[in-house]
Design a protein around this nucleic acid. Structure first.
Lengths: 338, 338
DNA sequence: AAAATAGACTACAACGTTTTCGTAAATAAA
DNA sequence: TTTATTTACGAAAACGTTGTAGTCTATTTT
C-alpha cells in the first residue's frame, strides 16, 4: 500500500502542497473550512508526515539518544523508563546506545551522533572513560548532552544525580551505628564521579566517628566479576577482614553475597552489607539487602525534561546546572544487629 | 561549529558533490587518487553523512523500533541487550517504545511508526492487546514486524520464542517429582501466547501424572500487583491451598514470596514455587528461586538478525517462521524436598 | 584515420517537507 | 473612488543525499 504524503492529499483535495502542509500545522494563513477538509482526509488516509523529510528540512529531529553503559541493570532500565515516559508525552523519540563500559564503543557512538541524527542526548559515562574530547566535539557541533548519574564535570551542561555524598555518609553511618568496627568501602572505579562522591561520604563518616581503617578499607574493584570475587574472597578470609562493607554499586553487593555464601560467612552477624541499589527483590534476599535506593525513574524524567525544554526552544547550549534528587536508605537484614 | 556536508567537502576539494558522494561510497566510477583525497578530508573534518537526507533519498532508514510492554524487567532488558548488540554490529539504530501493557498506547505507537521513521520493528505484545488491526495496517504499509516472546499468530511473519510448552511441562513435572500433590498454575493473562503455551505444558504434566486439580488450580492473575497479592493471599490461606505453584512470569513469583512472608508460609516446606524468570539474584533469594530461565539475550539477537537480514535485502515481507530457543530449568531452594 | 570504448568526472532531478515570497480577490480605510 | 490592508491560497526554493544520465578526454579498436 502506498504511504500517503502531502502531494497525495493535495491532489485529492485539489489544493497545493503548501496549503495542505500549512493546514495540517494549523497555520493562520489557511481558512477554517479548508483546514477541516484537509484534517478529515488526513485522518481518513492515516497520513503521517515523513519524519526524515521533516527533520531534513527543519534541520532538527524530535529524536534523542540515550547513551548508557548497560541496560540489564535495574538502575538504568528504570532511568530509561523515566526518559521514555517524558518522551512519549512530548512526542520525542528515543534511540538507545549501549557502551558496555567500553571507551572505544562510547567514542564511536558519539562520533556517529555528530551526523545530526538526534537533537541531543542523555548520557551516563562508561567506567572506562577518562578523556572527554569526543564529548567536547559533540557539543561543539551543537548537540547538547544532559548527563545523569555518571556525570562529566568537564562539560558545561545540566547534570542530574542523586545525593551520592549524603548517601555514602548515611550508608556508612548506618553501619557504624549498627556496631560495625571495621567498615570497608567497595569501589567500582576510581574515575567515575558518583563512586568518588560516595567514597567522600564514606570517608566523612569514618572521620566523624573516628573509625579505624587499614589498607584494605578501600577495596578497589573493577567491572570484572571474577576478579572482584577473588579480591573479596581474599580480603574476607584474611586476618584483617572488615565486619561491614559499603558497596558503591549493586553488583558488588551481589558478589559479596556470593563470596559469603561460599566462605560460609554469615550476613549480618559476621559481615554487614549495604549498597546503592534498585533491586526490586532486595527485600526477598537472604538476608534482605539494606540499600540506598536511587530515584532512577525520577532522574530519567528530570534529565529528559531539561533536554526537551532546551531542544524545544532551539537552544543547543545548556548552562551548568546540577540537579540532585534525594535517595532513601532502606535498612534491612543485611545490616541488622544480631 | 558548522557540521560538514558533501557540499563543504566538494568545495574544499574542488570537486562536484556527486563525485564526493560516490568517492565516499567507494564507487568504481571514481579514481583511486580522488578517493584517497576525499577520504582524507572526510576523516579530517569528521564528516558524517546526514541520516535524514540519506533516509529520505533512499526511502529507507537503518533504524528499527523495539516495541515492548516494559523495560524495568530482566527479560526485556536482556532482550534489548541482544537486539542492540546485533544492531551495533550491523550499523542499525534502535528506537525504544514502551506500551506499559496499554492497548491504546500500543496502537498510537504503531500508528506513528507508519510514517516511515523505521524500516521495521521488533515487538512483544502488550497484555491488553486482543485486536491486531493496527499491526495488519502497519505490514500493509510495508513495514515488517518480527515478534518475540509475546507473539501474534494473526500476522504472517517471523516469531521468536522459547519453548514455552516444554518449559511449562518441565516446571510442573519438577514440582510433581519433588512431591507436590496439588500443583497450581498462576497465569498473568489469558490472552497472550506464551502464557497459554505454558499452561498447556502445565496441563500436560497434570494429566500425565494424574494430579488432582480443583477450581483454584489455575490462578488467573493480572498486571495489578495489589490484586494479585490479595488473590494469592486468599488462596494460600484457604482450605484447598496448593502445595506448589508454577508461576507464568517472574513478578507473580515475587508476589507469592511476599504473601508467604506475610502469612508465614514456609517455602519450600509448605509451598513450592517455580517460575519463568531471568532474575540475576534468584540464587540469593530466601529461599533461592527455582526458575525456567529464558534465553532472553539470544532471543533478542535472533529477532534482530532476522529483521536486519530482510531489511538489508529490501524485503518488506517476512514469511512465517517460528524460531524456538531452548530455556533451561535451574532447580533451587524454592522447590527442594525438605 | 575514423570510430568505438573506457575512465573519470559533473549536472541535475528526486525524496517529502517547510517556509518565504508572491498574488489575486475581498474588505477596510482614505 | 482610490488606496491600503487583510484573507486565503500557490509557486518555488531550500534541507543533504543518491542515482541516472550525460560530458569530456584519453585510449583502444577497426
Amino acid at each position: 500500500m502506498e504511504t500517503p504524503n502531502l502531494k497525495m492529499l493535495a491532489q485529492q483535495l485539489k489544493l497545493s502542497i503548501s496549503t495542505v502542509s500549512k493546514a495540517l500545522r494549523d497555520s493562520h494563513e489557511i481558512g477554517e473550512h479548508t483546514k477541516k477538509k484537509v484534517a478529515a482526509l488526513a485522518k481518513k488516509l492515516n497520513y503521517q508526515p515523513n519524519p526524515h523529510a521533516s527533520s531534513l528540512r527543519k534541520q532538527k529531529s524530535k529524536t534523542i539518544a540515550v547513551v548508557i553503559p548497560e541496560i540489564a541493570n535495574n538502575f538504568f532500565s528504570l532511568a530509561i523508563n523515566g526518559i521514555e515516559s517524558i518522551a512519549q508525552e512530548r512526542d520525542y523519540h528515543v534511540l538507545i546506545y549501549l557502551t558496555h563500559e567500553d571507551y572505544t564503543k562510547e567514542v564511536n557512538i558519539i562520533k556517529h551522533l555528530q551526523g545530526g541524527r538526534v537533537g541531543g542526548l542523555i548520557m551516563s559515562l562508561s567506567l572506562a572513560t577518562k578523556k572527554f574530547d569526543h564529548l567536547h566535539e559533540l557539543t561543539k557541533h551543537n548537540i547538547p548532552i544532559v548527563f545523569f548519574d555518571r556525570i562529566c564535570h568537564e562539560i558545561e551542561t545540566a547534570k542530574v544525580t542523586t545525593d551520592d555524598f549524603q548517601g555514602g555518609l548515611a550508608a556508612t553511618e548506618h553501619l557504624i551505628i549498627n556496631n560495625s568496627k571495621h567498615v570497608a568501602f567497595a569501589s567500582i572505579s576510581n574515575t567515575i564521579s558518583i563512586d568518588n562522591k560516595r567514597m567522600q561520604g564514606y570517608l566523612e563518616a569514618i572521620n566523624k566517628h573516628q573509625i579505624k581503617t587499614s589498607n584494605t578499607s578501600i577495596i578497589k574493584c573493577s567491572n570484572n566479576d571474577t576478579n572482584n570475587y577473588n579480591k573479596f574472597k581474599k580480603i574476607l578470609s584474611g586476618k584483617k577482614a572488615p565486619d561491614a562493607i559499603f558497596a558503591s554499586v549493586e553488583k558488588l553487593a551481589v558478589t559479596i553475597y556470593e563470596v559469603c555464601n561460599d566462605l560460609n560467612i554469615k550476613i549480618p552477624e559476621q559481615l554487614k552489607v549495604i549498597c546503592f541499589s534498585n533491586l526490586t527483590t532486595a527485600h526477598l534476599m537472604k538476608p534482605s539487602l539494606s540499600a540506598i535506593k536511587q530515584p532512577a525513574f525520577e532522574m530519567g524524567k528530570e534529565a529528559a525534561s531539561i533536554l526537551f525544554k532546551h531542544l524545544d526552544k532551539n537552544r543547543t547550549f545548556i548552562p551548568n546546572e546540577h540537579i540532585v534528587i534525594k535517595s532513601s536508605l532502606a535498612a534491612r537484614g543485611s545490616t541488622a544487629i544480631k
